[in-house]
Design a protein around this nucleic acid. Structure first.
Lengths: 214, 214
DNA sequence: AAAACCTTGTTAAATTATTGACTTTTGAAT
DNA sequence: ATTCAAAAGTCAATAATTTAACAAGGTTTT
């Protein structure tokens, strides 16, 4: 990796959004864009865009701007969209099912290779291109296929145990939709928590403030 | 509202997490906690907790700490969990269905009162306590029930039109799961974007960095 | 009842993040 | 060719956020 380390979190969290907007521009047939134009579309400052991109290298050309396709490609590389890392989904309830169907894992550098659930009554049911496997076969499967990422759509109460099992199986990256915060003291762990309940509460706060300050 | 205004975004985004942890503590029968103890559980600094809480008032007692139930209640009020504001869901595909089943709207100060979809073949199908209504009846329904919040689980291409219709119907709060960024120049709009694709890409960045820096 | 100990609320310092200003380079027009 | 305008890259200044320090006020113990 080039000068990747020490990139601040706010910058990293903006990268997917840049990537998304650049994809949209490319689809519209726009081949070049300046930081100013992009800043207007994305509602942020041109300065920030230039600053962000320069964490990773000079992708633009002075006096001209950025080549949309090229910049998108570079950000894609930074995000690792071409890596195709193996991911497994734990929990095939409503949310797990929705993710399996709705998320384009390939576009995000992942490949869903297994789906597990503890509910025996749905074992072997098809879900997307895969079939649901009983959670008891987790160890066997992982030792064979060595997935790197686990998507957790399980109840809070089950999460800690599952995380322990997954870490023992050398999985250290988690996309966590469970109601449980994985900020435990395992070293070298990458967690992306998605707490939908927290998100809705944040909206609720906003609703209250908008509707009462008038 | 007390001194609510001017609360910074980072503070607001931490409130739901406090609320969640306090709920957990209460469930465990813990009745008092100090900022230091809470900071250890939540992996943040005691200073930050005290600072955050004091944006809204002095909920603690010097020399003693915070009363768990009371503090939770206060944060709940700040977040508006008791308001029961009416929400509608637009889009009953995989994700919309999962949200309707999986999210406890009541616990977050909302009440799901209607579900809409443009797919005629699922019209009147049951979903949770409700049935799916055709999107053509959106106006009629909203004029009658006046919902305040819309949850958007629709394709990117449909989003702008729907937002326009909803705004015309006086809805100004959006929980947006569509691939479209609502940061348009309507005034007085509250949007909580949940871009699952961005979240996965953020994880992907982390995976790459963790697994390559060794 | 007094002393020792905690823990909050609050102020100040340090850190981090964002914005603005400037310099240099490039492309286009004359 | 030369000049002008536009835009990236970079550095400096500002703003925001987090952390640390401390003083005031309770609680508990002796």
């Amino acid at each position: 990796m080039p000068k990747n380390s020490n990139i601040s979190n706010p910058v990293i969290r903006r990268l997917p959004r840049y990537y998304r907007f650049l994809g949209e521009l490319a689809k519209q047939g726009i081949s070049k864009i300046s930081s100013r134009e992009l800043s207007e579309k994305m509602k942020l400052t041109a300065s920030q865009i230039r600053q962000d991109l320069n964490c990773f290298g000079g992708f633009g050309q002075q006096g001209y701007g950025y080549n949309v396709a090229e910049l998108r490609c570079e950000i894609g590389k930074i995000l690792g969209v071409d890596k195709g890392r193996k991911a497994i989904l734990i929990g095939a309830g409503n949310l797990g099912t929705a993710l399996a169907m709705h998320i384009n894992f390939e576009k995000s550098g992942c490949k869903l290779v297994g789906i597990f659930d503890s509910n025996k009554s749905i074992e072997n049911n098809p879900l997307g291109d895969l079939t649901i496997t009983d959670i008891s076969k987790l160890e066997e499967f992982c030792k064979k296929h060595n997935p790197e990422i686990a998507v957790l759509c399980i109840p809070k109460s089950a999460t800690k145990d599952i995380v322990d099992r997954l870490i023992a199986l050398n999985i250290r990256c988690f996309w966590n939709f469970s109601h449980y915060d994985i900020n435990i003291d395992y070293g070298n762990i990458i967690v992306e928590n998605v707490h939908l309940g927290d998100s809705l509460l944040t909206l609720s706060y906003g609703v209250n403030n908008l509707l009462s300050e008038e």
